[in-house]
Design a protein around this nucleic acid. Structure first.
Lengths: 148, 148
DNA sequence: TCTACATGCTTGATAAATTCAAGTAAGTGC
DNA sequence: GCACTTACTTGAATTTATCAAGCATGTAGA
């Protein structure tokens, strides 16, 4: 008999929401470990790399970075300070509202976060296990669950 | 035309691995935000709650906690110290190998992590969007991608 | 306009997380 | 017994994280 505990693996035929949450937690912690290691290989902390990741999509204000990363705004100041010191990002004052600073990836910052993502070997290999169809299905399901 | 950027949402018909990784990163950060907030509601830091989560499955040595959480062993000492001070976990010496300390959840620790998980409203609601069949399929896909 | 009030960011204080180097205790192999 | 490894802890240094306070800017109403 399989299990009723939510352990990963082939798993139950009809997982409960709780079991799915446990599996999600498991998947995400594997992902975080891989991400952290890849970031370290580029001399970045996880928070710094996460910040670059958010900015990879588009520039953002300090405030919206804080929201994306679910932390206090004052925390972002330090993280961006350190990234800026390494010329991975740039602060630009928004001329429409001079209180706002737009944080923008430099080209080097862009290269750096791309490298981090390529270095996530475990995740890369994990996704290689899926067929094209399965990948499409996973993308659809995740997109449904966590839209925005 | 949709997009070629890997933005979440309905998404491309045939996502590349890179797009899937971006979506995973997105899911991850939404989940982390939810988790962190839920942990804070129980007066726990994210690391403390993550540790309780690992122990919820089964007791573990300091060493294996460090491996699970992908951090230095010395880091675990402090985290477990603080959890132990609050009587959420207990250190027990392994009689077979007296170097090893088994960290065990107390009943209160168990209740606490269960509460945290129930408090993850956003994640709960997100999973409610799936039908039973979709949930099964997501479980299968995630289990395939990240076994162990 | 001037006066409140709200918003965006920074600074300083403090705690926690994190890593590394070093140290102690306990097991393993010769 | 002796070298070697493994498990954990300690101490120093950096980063992350939060909160309270402060400054600059924007907004709305009297």
């Amino acid at each position: 008999m399989p299990d009723a505990t939510g352990a990963p693996g082939p798993g139950p035929a009809h997982p409960t929401k709780t079991q799915l949450i446990e599996l999600l937690a498991h998947v995400l912690s594997a992902h975080v470990a891989d991400f952290t290691a890849a970031a370290a290989a580029s001399d970045l902390t996880a928070s710094q790399a996460k910040t670059l990741g958010v900015l990879r999509r588009s520039p953002a204000s300090m405030r919206s970075l804080a929201t994306s990363l679910a932390c206090d705004a004052s925390n972002i100041t330090g993280i961006v300070d350190r990234l800026e010191k390494r010329a991975l990002v740039r602060r630009e004052v928004n001329p429409e509202d001079r209180r706002i600073k737009n944080v923008v990836l430099t080209e080097e910052g862009e290269r750096t976060i791309d490298t981090v993502r390529e270095t996530m070997h475990r995740t890369q290999q994990a996704l290689d296990k899926l067929s094209g169809e399965e990948r499409t299905e996973l993308y659809r399901l995740l997109g449904t669950v966590f839209p925005e």
